[in-house]
Structures are given as C-alpha cells and as structure tokens.
Nucleic acid binder design. Structure first.
Length: 584
DNA sequence: GCCGTTTTCGGCCCGACTGTTTTCAGTCG
C-alpha cells in the first residue's frame, strides 16, 4: 500500500484535547506561570469540552478561535497536535517535571507551589519520595513547611494507599435522591428549629451528569438546632467539622455533604453562589464589576453607595444584575448571561410517551403487559416495546419469527388495555456494514424503529449511523455516541456528520435517559436542535422501575436548552406518527 | 493566554481556612 493510501491518523477527540490543555495548565502552574495564563488553559479546556463540534475539524477549517477562550496561541497548539501528534510546549514540560509531581498535587492541601518546592529543594518526584523525605524529617525543615504540614502529608499518603487519584464523581441518579432525602428530613425534623427553606445547590441542582459532593442551603430561626438535626440524621454516616452556620458530613455511600445555614435575607445570594457553576459565577461577577457591582455569597456591593445589598431570593439577585432568573440547568456560561428572558424549558410532564424499552423477550425483566401497566400508571399516553434484534448477543437476540410473535402480543395487550396505546417496535442493531439486521418487510410491520450500535465500536460508527439515518424505516438513532458516564468515552463518532444526516433524512436523535448514558449529552443535543433535528427522550427501561429514568433525560434536555416542542414525544402518538420520515 | 462600552496593552471574581508566620502565601471551592 502506498503511503498516501494509508488511513489518516484519527483526529483526537474533544475530550482528549481538553485533557491535554488541562495538563498544560497544571504543568505551567508547576512551572510558576502567572495565574491568568494557567487559567487561560483551564478555560480553554472547558471551551473544548463544551464545544458541540469537533475541535480538530474546527482547527482545520480555521474557525476554532470562534470558541470563547480559544485564541491564536491555543490554535497554534492544536495545529501542531494535528500535524505532528504532539504539542511541543507540553513535551518540554513533561521532560522538565516528572508525572509523580502532578500526582502529588492531587493530595488535598498540597498544591503546585508546595510540590515545586519539594521537588527543587528535596528532589521529591512523587508519593514514594515524599514518604521517604518525611521519614527523614526533611520536609518540616523547609521554609513555609512545618511539623503540622509534614504530619498532614503522612496521613494523606497513608489514607490514599498505593494510587492517589482525583476524587471520584457519583452519577446524578445516585446523588440527587440522597440529597432530596436529606432535604426532606431537614424540612420535617427541622420544624422545631423554625426552618424556612432548604434547597439542594451545587452541580446536583444544575442536574450535571455526575457530582463530586452535595451542597445544601437552608434558613432557620435556630441555626444551631437545624445543624443538630443534620448531625443526628441517619443519612449521615460521619460528621465532620461543624461551625455556627454550617456543617460537613459524609453519607453512607461516601458522598460528602455540606450544609450552610444563613439568615433569610441572604438566602438568595447564598443559593445562587453555591449553585454555580464556577464558570457561570465568574462570568457574572466579571460583567458586574464593569458596572461597579461586586457579587459574593453574602450580597452585592455597589461601589456608588458603598453598601452591600442582600437578597432573599435568586430572582432578586439576577434582577439586580439586569438578568432574568436563569434556570440552574443553564448556568454553565454557555450564553445564558446574554439572555433577555429565560427560554421555556421542557418539563417531565410534557412527555406523553416513551419509545424505547425492553421486556423479557430480550434482556428486560418484565412482560409487555407489565411494562404497559407501569407506563399507564406513570400517566403515559403511549409506550413502544423495542426489544433487541436478531444479532444481539448474550442469548437476548430476537429472530424475525419471534419478533412477529412479539408484535402479535403487543397488539393483543393494546387491545386489552384502556387508557394507553401500546406500540410495536424494535431496537435494531446497525451492523459493521451499516445495514440493519432485519429485512425491510419485517421492519415494515413495526410502528417504530430504533437503530443503534452495540458492537464493533471501533468500526467506523459515523458511516454506519449515517447509513442508518438514510434507511427509510429508521425513526430514531438511540444512545448515539455510546458513552457511559465516567466509564467509557464515546466511540469515535463525527457528531456533526450524524446531525447533518439526521436533519437531511428526517431521522430523530435520542436523548437516552438511562442515568449512566444521558446520550446525546447536553451540548450535542443543543447542536442537534439548532440544526433543526427533533429529539426524543426515552427511558431505555429494562423493567417497570426504570421507566422513571425519563427524569434524567429531561434533565439533559433542559441543560440543552430544549423546549417541549423540540422533543418529538411531547406530541400525541397520532401527531408523532405523521412526523416520521416520508414513505412510512 | 485571552480579550476589548478600558480595543492591541493592561487588566483579568470572591472569600474562607490553614499553617506558617510577625503580616501573609498557598490552597480550595
């Protein structure tokens, strides 16, 4: 094969590029760069992660500097990465400082300055060397270090064990119910403490994919009494430090919780502050400073009057800054601070049906009838049974004959049950050749066809998904990127190409509501909507209990700025069926 | 390093806590 026929090296994903920028920021910080330069790299990493399109592609097209926080220097670094496979500045910094030094900065309380000093003065190049230096009592002799610091490091090293990792994040579906249970308890048992308001703040309130801790904000007549309720809650496994207006605890799951109790007239300021995100708050403060206003968790200081104004509600905080109240899901500094009014966002109650779920015919745990009853109980107008298809593994395959039996069963249950429409569908595998694993005449008997990739992720998913979009009977592409939050990156998919194919062919794209997927994720779902593609939100339930997954899909849809009209299954089935691509 | 009702240079959010210090740097959220 001639050299020019060799397949082009794969473009680095946005996640991979963001990781490199993050590392550049960390290493420049270690190198003693001014803090704003370091921040610029971290902002760049966020911009790349938030970008709905391929940053490698944008770099080639010369449009990458349109992203906020990406300037000429970062553009050059992307070019170098694409041309040579590496960023020279990063290569140099990697030679200059050992990786173990960055690992050390993951220890809480040991930052880049301290790590650098340990390296320069004692030659400490990682956890093992730090342990040895402590054993020789050399750390406490350094200027700026003392015996307490040395003891703290030893404890941290012992606690961390062999490998020091970044703090783990917990899926929202695990964390939010725990936060809500705690809030309920504080409201109930806090009555005697004269509790006024208790709210979840932080990334859980923003409905992020995952959270690393929980923040709860409250007001009460008797703060001390409310803190006592917190400390004695059965949800709290371990009570940490605790002061007059706040307490820290650890749940049985290991998740950290901070409770802050404030005066009622500051509740809005504190809730806003602790809801974040950091990027949202920083951007909001920067723009406020230009108008002589200084925002903190305690209030808004007006330079003209010299007075700090406190607000009981978030609405008043935003109004003082000339902004509409911004729904927490939008607070990621993705354009929400330029809004004249908040966009209408979809709510769970807007969904009329659920178009992707499994039964015992494939890998589900309940029958068609039980799924239908559970869906009716939830108030759905319709549901669609979409078991796996002919090539699905693990003994969960459904051959064409069995599919016809399922269709007959679905028709019978639909006939039997009042108050809900039961539809017959399938989640059809997209093969490596881009073809589906049922013949067209079989597919033609279905009300709804879901297509997705379950195998051979490395085998050109873009071409396969585009081919599926072009199939006249495919209604929707399910969990389009294949990611599993915190566990598996998306397969190498050209999302732009998929969105374009979906728009061109009238194929819907799914926001799979399984809490470990939430796929499409927010930025991609927003890009799809902006391109004119209709989304669906589906539970992908494998039993009656997971039909309520829709909640997490709606959370993602709201983070994608979607209104009810942007989601196909907010429509009655009779209307939705007419929206399917032509020829059906 | 980015960016512009401070527009090509000079700025670039806010506050708490800790431990080491004689007034503050480093770290964190």
């Amino acid at each position: 094969m001639a050299a020019e026929d060799a397949p082009a090296p794969k473009d680095p994903s946005n996640a991979a590029i963001a990781e490199l920028l993050q590392e550049l920021g960390d290493r420049y910080e270690l190198d003693g760069a001014v803090v704003h330069r370091v921040l610029a790299y971290r902002n760049g990493a966020k911009a790349v992660l938030d970008a709905p399109r391929s940053v490698a592609g944008m770099t080639r097209a010369g449009t990458v500097t349109e992203l906020p926080g990406i300037g000429k220097t970062l553009e050059e670094k992307f070019r170098a990465l694409l041309d040579t496979g590496e960023i020279p500045a990063l290569t140099k910094l990697r030679e200059k400082y050992p990786a173990g030094l960055l690992t050390l900065t993951h220890l809480p309380g040991l930052g880049p300055k301290k790590a650098r000093k340990l390296f320069d003065e004692l030659g400490v190049d990682g956890p093992a060397a730090l342990r040895a230096a402590i054993a020789d009592d050399r750390v406490s002799t350094l200027a700026g270090f003392g015996t307490k610091t040395q003891e703290k490091y030893l404890k941290l090293l012992d606690a961390a064990g062999e490998d020091i990792e970044r703090p783990q994040r917990v899926l929202l579906s695990k964390a939010l119910p725990l936060a809500e249970a705690l809030v309920d308890e504080l409201r109930e048992r806090g009555r005697e403490a004269g509790v006024h308001r208790v709210e979840v703040a932080g990334s859980a309130r923003r409905r992020a994919d995952s959270v690393h801790d929980l923040d709860v904000i409250a007001t009460a007549d008797d703060a001390a009494a409310l803190l006592e309720v917190f400390r004695t809650s059965e949800l709290i496994a371990e009570v940490g430090s605790s002061g007059d207006n706040g307490a820290h605890g650890v749940l049985h799951s290991g998740l950290s919780v901070d409770l802050r109790v404030v005066a009622p007239d500051q509740f809005g300021n504190l809730l806003q502050h602790f809801t974040g995100s950091k990027a949202h708050n920083v951007a909001m403060r920067e723009s406020a400073v230009k108008r002589g206003l200084h925002i903190s968790e305690y209030g808004i200081l007006d330079d003209e009057t010299g007075k700090t104004e406190r607000f009981a509600t978030e609405e008043e905080v935003y109004a003082r800054l000339g902004l509409p109240w911004i729904p927490p899901e939008l607070r990621e500094n993705r354009g929400e601070l330029a809004l004249d009014q908040a966009p209408p966002l979809i709510e769970l109650a807007d969904l009329r049906g659920d178009l992707h779920m499994h039964t015992t015919h494939s890998d589900g745990r309940a029958s068609v009838r039980d799924m239908a009853l559970a869906a009716r109980e939830l108030g759905h107008e319709y549901l669609c049974i979409t078991d796996h298809s002919a090539t699905h593994g693990f003994g969960d395959d459904v051959q064409p004959d069995e599919l016809r039996e399922i269709i007959a069963e679905v028709r019978a249950v639909d006939e039997e049950l009042d108050g809900i429409t039961v539809l017959a569908g399938s989640e059809v595998n997209i093969g490596t050749d881009g073809r589906l694993d049922y013949a067209d005449d079989v597919l033609a008997e279905l009300d709804w066809v879901v297509a997705s990739i379950h195998t051979a992720f490395q085998s050109d998913p873009t071409r396969r998904i585009v081919a599926a979009c072009e199939h006249p009977m495919v209604d929707v592409i399910a969990h389009p990127t294949g990611r599993l939050i915190g566990r598996r990156e998306s397969y190498d998919l050209d999302v732009d190409a998929m969105i374009d194919a979906a728009r061109r062919t009238g194929t819907f794209l799914e926001i799979n509501a399984s809490p470990a997927r939430r796929d499409l994720h927010d930025t991609h779902a927003r890009a799809a909507r902006d391109a004119g593609v209709l989304l669906t939100i589906d539970s992908d339930a494998h039993g009656p209990d997971t039909l309520t997954n829709l909640r997490w899909g709606v959370a993602t849809a709201r983070r994608a700025w979607l209104a009810a009209a942007d989601v196909a299954n907010t429509r009655p089935w009779e209307e939705l069926r007419r929206l399917r691509k032509g020829g059906r």
